[in-house]
């Protein structure tokens, strides 16, 4: 990855988005697990962020089949 010729493929970008989106999704949910005293459950800002994270992961999944094409 650190060579001068390396460029991300659609597959690798898809994997990164999938992992990043899934991690973000779980991280946003984890706020409520770690901070149990919060009122109101999953708040509106969290809901927006969850949708964004899920969308990111979904886009990642759809990029993976594109294989070695340059991203």
């Amino acid at each position: 990855m650190m060579s001068n010729r390396f460029t991300l493929s659609k597959r690798l970008l898809g994997l990164l988005l999938l992992i990043g989106g899934a991690a973000a999704f779980m991280g946003i949910l984890a706020i409520d697990l770690l901070d149990v005293g919060r009122e109101g459950g999953i708040g509106p800002a969290q809901q927006i962020a969850l949708v964004g994270a899920a969308a990111l992961a979904l886009v990642g999944v759809t990029l993976i089949p594109l294989g070695d094409r340059r991203a």
Partner: peptide, 10 residues
Amino acid sequence: LFIRQPRRAV
């Protein structure tokens, strides 16, 4: 920059 050339971006 990272997508096109990770080393340069870093």
